[in-house]
Amino acid sequence: MTEVFIQILKTISGWAIPVLLVLIPAVGFFKKVKVYEVFVEGAKEGFEIAVRIIPFLVAILMAIAMFRASGAMDIFVSFVSPLTNFIGMPAEVLPAALMRPLSGSGSLGIITELINTHGADSFIGKLASTIYGSTETTFYVLAVYFGSVAIKKTRHAVPAGLIADAAGILAAVFICRFMFG
């Protein structure tokens, strides 16, 4: 059963991109779109956008890197841990959950360590994996997406993104306790 599942997933992730890369130009070709010329025209924007997001990303990643290096996260964890104990989240997972919206590579590092220490099939390992798999690096997305269109006043995007992250983490704790706990 697992074997079949692995095979299906591997096939999907192996085929999805090549299929799109041939399917879209094929439709274009039959609709008499000048596929090569149009591709190049679109691709031109790629460089521009990548350069446009640099200042936004520098600002965000600089602040987050400083925050991480100062050790403030550990202090914050000790403040919040009574609350997370109450909802049934093991204290070991808390730093990973708090790091998730700030830094993709940072949280992946913490989670990989948790999985290696406690085992991938332990409750902690599964909960940490679920948290990683179900949320995004909010501040990275914020910087890159708004940066690409030069939006500086983000209005309610930060609270909305963070509340959604919190909801995702709570839901992960709930479902993992229900299924694995």
Binding site: L21, V38, F39, G42, E45, G46, F47
Partner: peptide, 17 residues
């Protein structure tokens, strides 16, 4: 840059089509 150029190129074709 590379991946952006690739997908924006494909997207442009999808748009025109």
């Amino acid at each position: 840059i590379g991946i952006m150029a690739l997908w924006l190129g494909i997207m442009k074709i999808a748009e025109e089509a």
